[in-house]
């Protein structure tokens, strides 16, 4: 194995293009686990942390661009980012432990393509996009289009994600992410839900995005769940309908972390609880 640490995006793209069996290293909290448990044996590990662009959190067009090497802890330390997208930042800081949060990145979380990734439902709800760089140039892609199945992404050979863009936060909007784990920390989500919504001056929901994690091969964006909120005050009947729609959309498997019945039921519970937090953050009735 070879370790490379290029200093520019161009060099990284070149290195990646010439090495079909290269893996990108940012936080390493998934990559090293997979290497050490003999699941993968890359010829090249490409450390992108020495590329300036990947290290920065910057405001852009009223939104936020977060570099691929920015750790969850660094996101949590940026007060303005936290104020705009608390759900996304909280989700990133649910990954692993304090130690893991000092290294892990939301881009890595996304490109690991686990349906249970904590930050992904939050990013999907937030309508985030990623900037993909590669031999054929740069393209912006909605977050939910990156994972295609467990462990597989839509990235083409030689491509990698350089940053995430969180759009400008609308007036009277809020986002939230909740997951269920058996312990209070250190577990992979058994089920999770992200909600981002916007209210009008009267407290009526005008737009919403609802996402679910760990209930399908990829994180789901569930428009029919969002529809239960739009036009309502996100009140009890709407929340009830949301829970039903979320449970109906959940198509999980049974595994060591949970049963099908459990995940279906709790998907609704979490969607409902996340919607209440998002509504309150948007300044709606509490």
């Amino acid at each position: 194995m070879q370790y490379l640490a290029p200093q520019t995006l161009d060099d990284a793209v070149k290195a990646l293009a010439s090495q079909p069996d290269a893996k990108v290293l940012a936080g390493g909290t998934d990559l090293l686990v997979r290497m050490r448990s003999d699941m993968i044996h890359p010829d090249v590990v490409l450390d992108i942390k020495r590329i300036d662009e990947t290290r920065r959190i910057t405001q852009e067009d009223g939104g936020w661009r977060i570099g691929a090497s920015v750790s969850a802890a660094e996101m949590g330390e940026n007060a303005a980012l936290v104020a705009d997208w608390p759900g996304v930042v909280e989700a990133a800081n649910l990954i692993g432990s304090t130690q893991i949060q000092g290294r892990c990145t939301i881009v890595g979380n996304l490109c690991n393509a686990s349906p249970a990734a904590d930050s992904v439902p939050a990013m999907v709800a937030a309508n985030a996009t990623v900037r993909v760089v590669g031999p054929e140039g740069t393209r912006d892609v909605p977050v939910q289009e990156i994972p295609v199945s467990p462990g597989k992404t839509s990235l083409k050979p030689g491509e990698f994600v350089a940053s995430v863009f969180l759009p400008p936060r609308p007036e009277r909007s809020g986002d939230a992410y909740l997951r269920f784990i058996p312990r209070t920390e250190m577990d992979i989500a058994v089920v999770s839900a992200g909600v981002a919504l916007q209210l009008d001056e009267g407290g009526t929901c005008t737009a919403a995005r609802v996402s679910l994690g760990a209930v399908a091969p990829t994180v789901l964006l569930v428009p029919e769940a969002a529809d239960t909120l739009i036009g309502t005050k996100v009140d009890e009947p709407a929340l009830e309908a949301l829970a039903k729609a979320a449970s109906a959309a959940a198509k999980p498997i049974a595994d060591k972390r949970g049963t099908v019945e459990y995940r279906v039921h709790v998907a609704g519970v979490l969607a409902r609880r996340a919607a209440v937090i998002a509504r309150n953050r948007a300044g709606g009735a509490s």
Binding site: Y3, A5, L25, G28, T29, L32, V33, R36, V45, D47, K49, S71, A73, S97, T98, Q99, I100, G102, R103
Partner: peptide
């Protein structure tokens, strides 16, 4: 657990080469 540039990390999930 060790610190790298003041931040706690699991040293089992850091490559030695990254310590440069």
């Amino acid at each position: 657990t060790v610190t790298i540039n003041g931040r706690v990390v699991c040293s089992c999930l850091v490559l030695g080469a990254e310590a440069e």
